[in-house]
Nucleic acid binder design. Structure first.
Length: 942
RNA sequence: GCCGGUGUGGCGGAAUUGGCAGACGCGACGGAUUCAAAAUCCGUUCCGGUUCACCCCGGGUGUGGGUUCGAGUCCCUCCACCGGUACCA
């Protein structure tokens, strides 16, 4: 009876399915034990692409499965669910390629991946499985969208609240409305208090026209429609979120050019949460680099707004700066070419030149701006402004190095202390006045006219104000106060984060629960009328084009009239024809898993409280690529739900773990297009995998006789180098593959795919099997004779190592420990039962099938998944005393007996056993004895 | 450019966090078994020297320096690769 993994794995997979071994009970269900703690472990759910699962997925899901099994054996209620993120571009593009309806391909793909999951022996609770495309699921996605639409962020508390509350407060006169739409609190004694910080004539709510009232509320809704410059990708036929555009100005998916153009689109007010998304990052147990990426993306910078009066007019230009302390060094100003004041201020003689420059820079696409050299261009407007600090008259320029989208679209230029300003000033011969002295002794202290950083203020004084001699931090503080008291400016915090563009011109997404009436009237679908179902369409393809000016044409425009143009209360309406982006479904799926089959609510309160208690999801595992997309969006939605009382924790994911990529060769042809890696041959006919890294750069490869360039990168669909687990499962079994994937290296690091090494794991499992079972008779080779002391010690040490590794997810270390222990057992004819049990228990989270089988061989009842995790005895791990040779100059001068765990102990402690040591060291007093692994390494005399 | 990560044998990677560098696995070499092969088992495998009595000596963790009785690990310099980001004022 050899190790027949086919039969074993089939048997146990059927057993688990029949017995619903991994079904997770909810509080209140029969058999639920409230005394046990919960553990919610989640792997980022997959999108069911046609290529099925690749090794990166297998790695991800195996890792959470191991944790889930371990935690379960350690006595937790474990929630380890799975579902499918089946809306969105990848699923749709696959359907378009195959010419089949996405609903059909999605169903097929889900079927395939489900089979792959089962074959890997993953212990999911299948009763909780769902797809984001399920009617019962996207219904609630639409419901959450309605929550966003019907909410605003209260400027006083910073929390989301129903928009009706705002309406009531406006109606009751609690707030008035400022000229820019800002809310102005009217306090009891009739005094007004500007929340927006802008003075002006305030109006009462009742003085506004209904249209104005409506658009005012829209200014505050968390989901709103606005005409904003968006990323338009004609090749994909859709707009994209900032996060979906690469830094080369191309689409994240497909690498197509992206253009900026204004379109009226749905947008989510994620910026209302900038500060909380930033601050709440701190306590999270997330990898520091990911936190940093989110911080950078949110991009908080603290500084001040400063008003510069325009000479000879009563207008002023407001700028944002992080360095108000350099105000004295501001020798000119720059406006973005699109800045609204440009027309007004430009002097007649400069008008033509300025207009020409504006026209040129507007014609530049994002890509042009990126690829062109960063040589500074600009034009003088002929106007001047007054530097409020020193009263100097400074010229106002326009230049495209100033962006309209950040800050106020205008800057004060301090060429001595800013790279870009410096470059510009040199190009156009503008004055450079240093106002910060670099700290002494630094590299830059000789070049005072181009210094970036903190130092000491100089040249910054007049009769009423002096910054001279102040260090930068203090100077900032002093000038900020001076600006505020004199009405020249105010402290201000800026964020890079923009609102989230939420519309897509796609078929395969959640329809919005929104109707459009006359004009710009928006009608939200009533909660009882959701879901708004996605209509069946024969032609669901997006309209792809090369023309950046083409009008977007959403596929839902081709929906049947009765879907598209319903009549509400006798009035003809048109449905919102855009759909939600891919990210919508993944923003809250972890909540649905708590209570998947709930038909009344998006999640039952009690279930949510139980599974999300503590820090939300206890362990969330997925790839780094979601650092600023999914992980930011989901946090945002979660916070809204939290504010509205639908979620009980401020953050969704308490601990995040990023698994690294599995890397594999990929190939790109001369046009830069990625080609199928499995059709590439190399010039010497050698299989590519046997080459080492140095060779990788020098070998030549061909695809259909065309030379291709080798790149080495993440295994996956985008590089067309996916390897599916199917073949290896067939050839070696799921347990071997699982162990192998985990043995590849640290889970959080990227590592190359080297399938030939799997043989080592196969040998290990076969050896293990032979240790337990006489392959001829089928009898167990285990008996009840007691383990020797050294063996028991090793056993306990193994448990300790594996337990520690489980907590830190260092599964490669755990496996190495188990192999070592098994190698120890190899030489024995009979294996002591406790050693056998320990080994099998420790192995079971990683290799569940063979462990179940051996567990049964050892005479146990039930599934090993229900067994208890073995304990280790710390006492057994240390021998109490050992005898050591004392060497001086390489010669043994005596012996010393020390505690076995003596390490960096003082000689007083170590010498308790032997008072002669001090004498042995040439008459010197020994202070410290250094023992490493039972060997005396050094005696420190002092 | 800026921010972050990583550099250890032929390869993937260990190293109790400042204490025997190279665990464990792959590959390679030698041997046993076999008619033969596969599978399996045993031995060797960082480099150099000296021994082949398995012991000893010297060097060694991208580069150059430093701290320490002691550095793969801590500090500074530089280099290479990977990831993020970029006129963000």
């Amino acid at each position: 009876m050899h190790y027949d993994f086919h039969a074993i794995e089939k048997h146990w997979q059927d057993y688990w399915e029949q017995h619903k071994t991994f079904r997770t009970l909810n509080p209140g269900q029969e058999g639920f034990d409230p005394s046990r703690p919960k553990y919610y472990v989640l792997a980022m759910f997959p999108y069911p692409s046609g290529a099925g699962m690749h090794m990166g997925h297998a790695l991800n899901y195996t890792s959470t499965d191991i944790v889930a099994r371990y935690k379960r054996m350690a006595g937790y209620h474990v929630l380890h669910p799975i579902g499918f993120d089946s809306f969105g571009l990848p699923a749709e593009q696959y359907a378009v390629e195959k010419g089949i309806h996405p609903r059909v391909t999605t169903q097929q793909n889900i079927g395939n991946i489900t089979t792959q999951f089962r074959r890997l022996g993953l212990g999911f609770d299948w009763d909780r499985c769902f797809s984001t495309t399920d009617r019962d699921y996207y219904r609630w996605t639409q419901w959450i969208f309605l929550q966003l639409y019907h909410s605003y962020v209260d400027p006083e508390t910073g929390c989301a609240a129903p928009i009706e509350q705002l309406r009531r407060r406006l109606e009751s006169g609690e707030y008035d409305v400022g000229p820019g739409g800002e809310l102005i609190k009217v306090s009891g004694d009739g005094m007004m208090d500007a929340l927006g910080g802008v003075e002006g004539v305030a109006r009462k709510w009742i003085e506004l026209e209904p249209d104005q009232q409506r658009s005012l509320l829209n200014e505050y809704r968390l989901a709103y429609m606005a005409e904003v410059p968006v990323n338009w990708c004609p090749a994909l036929g859709t707009v994209l979120a900032n996060e979906e555009v690469t830094n080369e100005g191309r689409s994240d998916r497909g690498n197509h050019p992206v253009y900026r153009r204004p379109l009226r689109q749905w947008t989510l007010r994620i910026t209302a949460y900038s500060e909380r998304l930033l601050a709440d990052l701190e306590p999270l147990d997330w990898p520091e680099p990911i936190k940093l990426m989110q911080r950078n993306w949110i991009g908080r910078s603290d500084g001040a707004e400063v008003d510069f009066a325009i000479d000879d007019t009563d207008q002023s230009i407001c700028v944002f700066t992080t360095r108000p302390d350099t105000l004295f060094g501001a020798t000119y100003m720059v406006l973005a070419p699109e800045h609204p004041l440009v027309e007004d201020i430009t002097t007649p003689s400069r008008r033509d030149t300025v207009a020409e420059y504006q026209r040129l820079s507007a014609a530049k696409s994002e890509i042009d701006r990126q690829t062109q050299t960063k040589k500074k261009t600009g034009e003088f407007t002929g106007a001047h402004a007054i530097n409020p600090a020193n009263g100097q008259r400074i010229p106002i320029w326009i230049a495209d190095y100033v962006m309209m989208g950040y800050g106020t679209g205008a800057i004060m230029a301090v060429p001595a202390h800013d790279d870009r300003d410096h470059e510009f000033a040199q190009a156009f011969h503008l004055p450079i006045v240093p106002v910060v002295r670099p700290p002494a002794g630094t590299k830059s202290d000789h070049n005072i006219e181009a210094f970036i950083g903190d130092g000491t203020s100089i040249n910054s004084a007049h009769s009423k104000l002096s910054l001279n001699g102040l260090p930068t931090a203090q100077a900032k503080h002093v000038i900020a106060q001076w600006l505020t008291t004199n009405g020249y400016g105010r402290p201000r915090t800026q964020y890079k984060l923009r609102d989230w563009l939420f519309s897509r011109q796609r078929y395969w997404g959640e329809p919005f629960p929104i109707l459009h009436g006359d004009g710009e009237k928006i009608i939200a679908v009533e909660p009882e009328d959701i879901p708004v179902e996605l209509p069946e369409l024969d032609d669901f393809k997006p309209r792809s084009t090369d023309d950046p000016d083409a009008a977007p044409s959403p596929p839902l425009d081709r929906a049947p009239t009765d879907w598209k143009n319903p009549t509400i209360n006798g009035a003809a309406c048109i449905r919102e024809l855009n759909t939600m982006p891919q990210w919508a479904g993944s923003c809250w799926y972890y909540l649905r898993f708590c209570d998947t089959r709930n038909h009344e609510e998006f999640v039952g309160r009690e279930m949510e409280r139980f599974w999300m208690s503590g820090h939300g999801v206890d362990l969330y595992v997925g790839g780094v690529e979601h650092a600023v997309l999914h992980l930011l969006y989901a946090r945002f939605w979660h916070k809204v739900l939290y504010d509205l009382g639908h979620a009980s924790t401020p953050e969704p994911f308490g601990r995040l773990f990023n698994q690294g990529y599995i890397q594999e060769d990929a190939f790109r042809d001369e046009r830069g297009v990625v080609v199928d890696a499995f059709e590439v041959t190399d010039s010497h006919g050698r299989p590519a995998l046997e080459l080492d890294r140095r060779q990788r750069q020098t070998e030549h490869f061909f695809y259909h006789n065309q030379p291709v360039q080798r790149i080495f990168g993440k295994m996956g669909k985008s590089l067309k180098n996916s390897v599916t687990p199917d073949k290896l499962v067939e050839q070696y079994g799921a347990d071997t593959l699982r162990l192998f994937l985990m043995y590849l290296g640290p889970l959080d690091q990227s590592k190359p795919w080297n399938p030939k090494d799997i043989i080592g794991i196969e040998r290990f499992l076969k050896r293990l099997w032979r240790n337990y079972i006489n392959e001829e008779s089928g009898d167990p080779l285990v008996d009840d004779h007691p383990a020797s002391d050294p063996l028991r010690r090793q056993m306990h040490r193994t448990v300790q190592r594996v337990t520690d590794a489980m907590e830190t997810m260092s599964f490669n270390i755990a496996i190495a420990a188990l192999i070592e222990f098994n190698n120890e057992l190899v030489h024995r004819k009979r294996i002591p039962r406790d050693a056998a049990e320990t080994l099998v228990l420790c192995l079971s989270p990683m290799a569940p099938h063979i462990s179940e089988q051996l567990w049964r061989q050892l005479g146990a009842d039930g599934s090993i998944a229900d067994a208890e995790w073995p304990k280790y005895d710390p006492e057994l791990l240390v021998e109490d005393r050992i005898e050591l040779p004392v060497q001086v100059n390489g010669k043994v001068r005596g012996r010393i007996i020390v505690p076995a765990d003596a390490k960096n102990d003082t000689i007083e402690q170590a010498a308790l056993a032997d008072g002669k040591v001090a004498v042995a060291i040439a008459g010197k007093t020994v202070r410290k004895v250094i023992v490493v692994k039972g060997r005396l390494v050094n005696l420190v005399a002092q």
